[in-house]
Design a protein around this nucleic acid. Sequence first.
DNA 1: TGTACATCAGTGAACGCGCGTTCACTGATGTAC
DNA 2: TGTACATCAGTGAACGCGCGTTCACTGATGTAC
Lengths: 190, 190
Amino acid sequence: MVRYAKEHKQVTRQRIIEKAGQRFKQDGIDGSGISTLMSDAGLTNGAFYAHFTSKDDLVAHVVAEELRTQVARYGTLRPGRPGLEDLIREYLSPEHRDHPGLGCPSAALLDEVGRCEAGTKQAYTDGARDIVAEIAARLAPEDPKSARGTAIGLFTMLVGTLQLSRALADGKFSDEVLERGIENALALMG
Amino acid sequence: MVRYAKEHKQVTRQRIIEKAGQRFKQDGIDGSGISTLMSDAGLTNGAFYAHFTSKDDLVAHVVAEELRTQVARYGTLRPGRPGLEDLIREYLSPEHRDHPGLGCPSAALLDEVGRCEAGTKQAYTDGARDIVAEIAARLAPEDPKSARGTAIGLFTMLVGTLQLSRALADGKFSDEVLERGIENALALMG
DNA sequence: TGTACATCAGTGAACGCGCGTTCACTGATGTAC
DNA sequence: TGTACATCAGTGAACGCGCGTTCACTGATGTAC
């Protein structure tokens, strides 16, 4: 019937998106060229435009996928507040700090997303809404709306703290930022 | 004696650094080319290497200068905690969100600094130390050390909140993030 | 069963462009005598 | 006072390179008859 399995091209496209997510988080969006991205996916540069109309198009899909993955992580945590506490400790760990390619897209790319075109910002906005809702639901399952403010504060502090820890040249200072961040985040949860 | 006023070249160098700070914060470091930076300073590209050994060299000096400016801002605030409260409201304002070029370098560039070479990260580290110390001294003038944790939390939340507000395509959601951020920051101060 | 043709994911060379960097030169202002 | 020379901040064209993007082509697999 078909020369390739029906879903072959979709699988390839998904592989490009996932590898590009890692590369973007490691080297930045501006810092990652099409040739590198395609080579990460085991392909050559020419095939790119059979999958995406432009780099901007890829970036928007990558951001959407990365945030979807973050939301999915919440489903794997212990239920309720204990799950959030686990998340805080994992998020503000030296492992996460030292491996941005496998970590949170917001920590790696948030200020760059602020400079991206509308489609990418929209994809980020949709994902951010889900993340805030997930955190709020864990903080106050009976009335998530009341916890939105705290959820936003928790999220922004996690992101800012990890970014700061990555920008510091002094390992001791960086470790201190992570440790204080855990204390602050747990305190913020109440 | 000299063809130009003694300090002429220093003045030009300082102008390049300050204009580059604005450009970096607006378009990103990777997003700003030497020709644009020099044209911002009213010069042509060729003069760049009479002032800096490389783009990385400029970036390190810009980061150092930008953080020095941030620290200097603390001196212009009302003394003590009221000054910090003013800062929080100014920092998390729509005006600051909408004019990154004139705003906080951490909010505009923090994740990019994390990917910069050692000299730039060192410059950032030195500046961050001063900012944390300034905030801590305002939170607990009698015992700043005890307030370091809270100072770090306040700083990271401000930075993360402004970044998030800039990344959101939805103005209403973005405004909400700023408002909740002010509440959370004031609560964190205690 | 065998051969001609259609499909299409992927190849790889090439496009113009802007990047960071280099360098021979300019021209305004000084000094020497 | 006038002319030859030194200084040096800044000019602007050029360097090789990698960028995002285009396109003629390949080659593996299917269908037609």
